[in-house]
Write a protein that binds this DNA or RNA. Structure first.
Lengths: 103, 103
DNA sequence: CTATCAAGGACAATGTTTGTCCAAAGGTAA
DNA sequence: TTACCTTTGGACAAACATTGTCCTTGATAG
């Protein structure tokens, strides 16, 4: 996976375009609807876990890394949507430690 | 709001207990079901924006701060549930900057 | 024209969340 | 004990959100 910061969808679009494949070609291979893949690339629809697995497999990506891209996307969109400020993430981090520590 | 790290629900439970009020008393005041408030305190149910506003008002808290507690909770629970690692938050932070910068 | 492609609208099916009511468990006081 | 009050948590319909699919549009290329 490239070091470039880009959303989940943008990243897979870039990968697809690098190989000059159409949405249909990729969608068919991984067994999902062409339109759905397009939406996923535009961050218009969220991929499911299963779809992420298939996409990782298709592009030979590490599934765990791709999942991290996916989850960090969701968090980023949430912060933007709620117009929460950045230190919300710091608070979240402390809470994670706290919740882990209390079994 | 206290500096102690605790979940959203724990924080409001502490506030309620500090004033020795029952769930029913508080729930009635803010106009929600007693059982629902109990669940919110136990993080068994998520409060809605409207409920957060009412709770903030009742306990004389800054609504924005309380909302931050709420959102950071959601993020923390998400990370734990997905078993994502902590640096997912760093990636999210970079994506927020990225998304903000691209208009 | 005719293909192929991507964008995006619409919509039923499916899933998730919400509020509410009820019952049970625990405490306390008379 | 009985009576009362609190909290917990199950169940469930109603409300809401997401998913997959299909169809139309518009753009580009041959």
């Amino acid at each position: 996976m490239s070091k470039t910061i880009a959303t989940f969808g943008e990243q897979i679009r870039l990968l697809r375009e690098e190989e000059t494949l159409s949405l249909r070609e990729v969608a068919e291979q991984i067994g999902i609807d062409t339109s759905l893949l397009g939406k996923i690339e535009r961050n218009d629809r969220q991929a499911t876990k299963e779809q992420i697995k298939l996409i990782a497999k298709f592009f030979k990506l590490d599934e765990k890394e791709l999942l991290k891209e996916f989850i960090s996307d969701q968090i980023a969109y949430k912060i933007l949507k709620e117009e929460a400020d950045l230190d919300t993430l710091k608070v979240a981090e402390m809470k994670i430690e706290y919740l882990k520590s209390k079994k």
